[in-house]
Each structure stands twice: as C-alpha cells, then as structure tokens.
Amino acid sequence: MFDYDAELARYHERLWEALGVQPGDHVLDIGCGTGRTTRDAARAASPGTALGIDVSGPMLARAREQAEGEGLRNVGFVQADAQDHVFPPEHFSLAVSRFGTMFFSDPVAAFANIARALRPGARFVQLVWQAADLQEWHVSIRAALSRGHAPTASAPAAEDAFALADPRVVVSHLNSAGFTAVHVTDVREPVCYGPDAESALAAVLQLRMTREAVTDLDAASAEATLDRLRTTLAAHDTGDGVWFDSRAWLVVARRR
C-alpha cells in the first residue's frame, strides 16, 4: 500500500496549522485514507470526536488498526462516498480533507452534502493540487514513463487529481454548495517518495499512473521504463530522501 502519510508529511504540517482543532470539536475527515489526519484530530478534539470517510476498504482497515493500537476511543471510520453518504445533519463543527476532494463525480453535490453535515459557521479546510504542470513529481515521473519525453499536457477532467486546480472553480463550487468566506492560499512543499531511490521506485510502482503505463509493455520495454524511473528518482535523492517539488491550494471556507 502506498504510504501517502510519508509522501505528504510536509503538507500535513501546513494543513494542521490551518485546521486548529479545539477540545470538544466534532471533526469530519473527507477522503481520510489510512486516517493520519483523523487520528490526530481525535486526539486534539477530545472529549469531542473525529470521523473519517473513504471509499477504500484496505486503507480504512489500516486506519482502524492504527487507531486501536493508539488507544483512541473517540474516532470512527466509515467506508462510503462523501458525495452521497447520509451524515447526521449539522453535527460536525469542523471538516478537513488532505487531497481527498478532487475525485468527486459531482463536486457541487459533494460539497453540498458535506455542508449539510456541518453546523452553521463551521469551517471546511482542504488541500487540493494545483495544475499538473506545476508538480515536479507528476512531470518527471510521467516523462520517465513516456520514453523520457514529457507528455502533452491536457485539461483536468472530473475525477482526476487536478480537477480542482483552478481556484476560481473551487470558489464557485463551494459557494454554490452553501459555503462562504472562501480563502485560497498558495502552498509549496516538497513530497517524499522514500529514503532512497530503490525504496522510491517500489513506492512509485504502486501509483496508478505507473501501473497503467507498464501493464501492457513487453519485458524489454518494461525494463527500459524501470531504468528511466530509477535514473529520475536517483537524480532526486538528496541523501535524506527522494524529494520532488509540488504546489497545492489550501482552501478554507465556512458553512453558511
């Protein structure tokens, strides 16, 4: 399983600073993955609660296992799509998402559903990726997968990682869904794929864009692709991890 917590460690710090969980909060974590943000929120919110929601059963299994190992009793996880899951109305005092809101088939409907789960005036804090061509990790890895040539850029489609790259679109979606006072801040942090190039290669091979690129290759082409990936990752090995530049939007809004 790909370790998104390690990859996004620097972004987690920035998100946590903006989130400001208080004791007694009831926190909703959208696209919680293996639950790092959910568990941190549960600790900070006690005697309040934190609920993580995600569509991935394996990730939620890991989240529950880690929460139990950490002795957390005020945290829960549900496997469902936040776009249409029936949350208790006006229950949560805070919502958060760490790169988990870009994949909705209908973002306005999803944000409206989240808004209904929040108390009036509650904040929704999220991180979303900026444009694909601003992500060194995306450009470099795709170039290695494309015989060393950068692939032609295309406009972000719904349900992809860059679907919320345009801040005007994000603001429009949130306003239409019942949020106000939307603030979008440019955040730039590196992402880490492992302690060294070989570990990073094993991690990158778990990414969907990598799996799809090598699935139908013959043995010689696959080996050539892996060699290009090794070279790319080795070039970003700082001796303290394999790091790539990236940019995101930190989006903060309030439920009307």
Rank of each mutant, 00 (worst) to 15 (best):
G194V: 00
G52W: 00
R43K: 15
G48K: 07
M102R: 06
R147Q: 14
T210Q: 08
D29I: 05
R39T: 09
S46P: 00
V96G: 01
V214A: 12
R73G: 11
G69R: 14
E68I: 03
A163N: 01
A109C: 03
E223F: 10
F162W: 09
S46H: 14
Q22D: 09
F99Y: 11
A165F: 06
V27R: 06
A222M: 14
A109E: 06
A155Q: 15
P190Q: 07
G33H: 01
E90P: 02
P156L: 10
P89W: 00
W249V: 02
R36Y: 09
P88E: 08
L217A: 11
W243V: 13
A144N: 13
V55F: 05
F179A: 01
W243K: 15
A41P: 04
L233E: 01
R254A: 09
A177P: 03
A95H: 04
F162E: 03
G194R: 00
A153K: 13
V204W: 00
G35V: 02
G148Q: 09
R256H: 10
V169G: 05
V242W: 05
D160F: 01
M1Y: 05
D40H: 12
A222C: 14
V187E: 08
A63Y: 06
A155E: 15
A132S: 11
H236T: 14
L164K: 01
Q66L: 15
Y11P: 02
T210Y: 08
D160N: 12
A203I: 00
L127P: 02
N113G: 07
